[in-house]
Nucleic acid binder design. Structure first.
Length: 298
DNA sequence: ACATAGACCTGTTGGC
DNA sequence: TGCCAACAGGTCTATG
C-alpha cells in the first residue's frame, strides 16, 4: 500500500490514537521484520507518551516523551489496524480458532480518557521495519540521511529539477523513483505524474533540462502534476490495491482514478488521444504509459 | 557514476 | 481442481 499518499493516509488514521496516548504495552511476535527489532524494543517503548505522529517521505515517526522517535516503514505490504473492543469480538466470532496471520506488533495505547486502544501492525511480506532513533539526530540517521526533498513542499520546483537533472542521462522513471532525488514517490504515482505531463518514462532526464521555454514549461508541469496527483490521492484516502484498507478499515479509492497504472491494453483517457496503455519493464519494475501522448522527445 | 539483476518474503492471479 | 509462473505499492546490495 505504501507510497506517500498511502503513508500519509495511515498517519492521519493513526494520529488520533497515537498522539497524547501512553504506550502501556507492546507485543512483538517475532524477532525481525526486514531488519531485527532494536535491542529492548518493547521495553524502551513501554511507559512512553507519544507527542506527535508525523511523516517524512514514506516513513512514519512517533515522537516519544524520552526524546527517542519510533521510526516505522511499511515496505510493500505493511498495514495498521485499530482494534476497538467491538472489533475484537467480531474477529473472534469470525475465526474462533485462528490468530490473524502476520500480526507482528501490537501497541496498547492508553488514551487521555483512560481507555486502551490496540494498534496492530500486519505485514505479510515483512519488507517493513521499525527502529528507535534519537529524535534530535534523526535526520542524520541512516534512514533519513541522503533522503531527497518532500514533493509536496516548496522545494520541488522547476529550478530544483534543473539543478538536479542537468547533464544526467538517467531515465525519467528511475530518476523520479530514486528517493535521493524526491522522497515519497513510488511506482504508481511516478507513472501517473509522467502521463499527466506527457513525458516518456524511458526518456533521459535531460529532455526537460535547459533554459528554452519548452523545457522550463515541462519542468514546471512535472512539478505541478506530481503535487496534484499526490494531493488528489491523499484526498481520496490513498490507493487500495488488493483488499488493502486504512487504519479504520475503510478503503482508499484513488485506484479508480488511475490513468495508466495497471491499465495495460486499455484506451488512453487523455482527450483526443487514441493510444492504448502499454506496460514495459524498467529495471525490473512495470512502467505503464501511453506511447502516443507520451512519445519520446529524442 | 549509472544501469541492471538479484535479494529479501508471502500472497494472489491467470493460464494450462 | 491442481500446479506453476508471473507479478505485487519498496529498498538494499552486488556486479558490470
Amino acid at each position: 500500500m505504501p507510497e506517500l499518499p498511502e503513508v500519509e493516509t495511515v498517519r492521519r488514521g493513526l494520529a488520533p490514537v497515537f498522539e497524547n496516548a501512553q504506550i502501556v504495552n507492546v507485543v512483538v511476535n517475532r524477532p525481525d521484520l526486514r531488519f531485527p527489532f532494536p535491542d529492548d524494543f518493547a521495553q524502551r517503548l513501554k511507559g512512553q507518551y507519544v507527542n506527535a505522529l508525523s511523516r517524512r517521505a514514506k516513513y512514519l515517526l512517533a515522537d516519544l516523551s524520552n526524546s527517542e522517535a519510533l521510526v516505522m516503514h511499511l515496505g510493500m505490504s505493511g498495514s495498521f489496524r485499530i482494534n476497538g473492543a467491538a472489533q475484537h469480538v467480531a474477529t473472534a466470532v469470525h475465526c474462533p480458532d485462528k490468530l490473524p496471520q502476520h500480526d507482528h506488533v501490537i501497541f496498547e495505547l492508553q488514551q487521555t480518557d483512560g481507555t486502551v486502544a490496540e494498534v496492530i501492525y500486519n505485514d505479510p511480506r515483512r519488507f517493513g521495519f521499525m527502529d528507535l532513533v534519537s529524535r534530535r539526530r534523526i535526520y542524520e540517521s541512516k534512514f533519513f540521511k541522503g533522503l531527497g526533498i518532500e514533493p509536496l513542499g516548496n522545494e520541488l520546483n522547476a529550478d530544483y529539477l534543473q539543478t538536479l537533472f542537468a547533464g544526467k542521462k538517467t531515465n525519467l522513471k528511475a530518476a523520479l523513483l530514486n528517493q535521493k532525488n524526491i522522497a515519497g514517490l513510488g511506482n504508481i504515482y511516478v507513472c501517473e505524474a509522467l502521463w499527466r505531463t506527457g513525458l516518456n518514462p524511458m526518456d533521459p532526464v535531460n529532455v526537460i533540462c535547459g533554459e528554452d521555454p519548452q523545457a522550463q514549461n515541462l519542468r514546471q508541469d512535472l512539478c505541478r502534476h506530481i503535487r496534484e496527483v499526490l494531493s488528489e490521492a491523499i484526498e481520496a484516502g490513498g490507493s487500495s490495491l488488493k483488499d488493502h484498507s486504512q487504519a479504520d478499515g475503510t478503503l482508499g479509492y484513488f485506484q479508480h482514478r488511475f490513468a495508466v497504472y495497471d491499465r495495460e491494453g486499455q484506451p488512453c483517457s487523455k482527450p483526443g488521444c487514441d493510444g492504448e496503455i502499454m506496460r514495459q519493464q524498467q529495471s525490473g519494475r512495470s512502467t505503464f504509459y501511453c506511447p502516443i501522448c507520451q512519445k519520446s522527445r529524442l
